[in-house]
């Protein structure tokens, strides 16, 4: 198991009360790595097969990889759990995205380190000049039209509203959309969403990728955590069909 898959219900991570930090970015540099990630998603090579069929081959970028949320998440899920907690949200992005560009051969570790050392000295050095509106337009077009997941399938949902379902304990892989705290727990199907949802990549033995139905499953917290005696609360999770089976 990976701790990052099991955050829900984990206790004692930090002192109470919670930090109610309402800013989106707490350091100005964080805005830049956010922008880089969005640009990568908007230039991802898989977008020619997305429903809007973006003309990605015609975009004059040297970016030649697939990059989606799944890739960013794989990086975060692969981290040593201590580092996951040690680094702030956008520090994890910076580490993951920098490593991706080095490992994919776009840049070398040496040039990244050397350039970092330079900018530590010259903090207000200007960025290089390269103007290519067609790159920027594609990224904005991606923000406008997104990457819709619903696909036509020739089958019906396996489960119905009101049905009791058991969450499977699927094998752990590099990425999942199954919250760990729900594994082996039973809940009630509250809604069957219309349409079958493909996922951004195959998650292997975890089971995502091909289009499948998604259910809103309602859980009683008392059925998840045995130390809860009364709560008057419910947890609703959106679960892909491959993650559940009929209970009893």
């Amino acid at each position: 198991m990976k701790l990052q898959h099991y955050l829900g219900g984990l206790e004692g991570i930090d002192t109470e009360p919670l930090n109610f930090e309402k800013r989106v970015f707490v350091e100005p540099w964080e805005t830049r790595i956010f922008g880089i990630h969005v640009a990568m998603m908007g230039l991802s090579k898989h977008l020619n097969k997305a429903l809007p069929q973006y003309p990605i081959e015609n975009v004059p970028t040297k970016f030649n990889s697939i990059w989606t949320w799944a890739d960013l998440r794989k990086g975060a899920e692969a981290m040593n759990p201590f580092d996951y907690f040690r680094f702030r949200y956008y520090e994890k992005w910076l580490g993951g995205i920098s490593s991706f560009f080095v490992q994919s051969g776009y840049i070398t570790q040496e040039e990244l380190d050397a350039r970092t050392a330079t900018y530590l000295e010259k903090t207000d050095a200007p960025n290089p000049s390269m103007f290519e509106p067609a790159i920027d337009d594609q990224v904005i077009d991606y923000l406008h039209r997104g990457d819709p997941a619903i696909r036509e399938v020739d089958r019906q949902p396996k489960f119905n509203v009101g049905q009791k379902v058991l969450v499977k304990d699927v094998p752990t892989t590099e990425h999942t959309r199954l919250p760990g705290y729900l594994r082996n727990k039973t809940g009630i199907v509250d809604e069957v969403y219309q349409g079958a949802y493909a996922y951004l990549c195959s998650t292997g033995a975890d089971g995502l990728g091909e289009p499948m139905y998604v259910y809103s499953v309602k859980f009683d917290p008392k059925d998840i955590w045995s130390d809860i005696t009364q709560s008057n609360s419910w947890v609703y999770a959106d679960l892909f069909e491959v993650y559940v089976e009929a209970a009893e």
Partner: peptide
């Protein structure tokens, strides 16, 4: 500096 280096590269 790191993110600036990455963006400029």
């Amino acid at each position: 500096a790191r993110v600036k280096a990455l963006e400029s590269l």
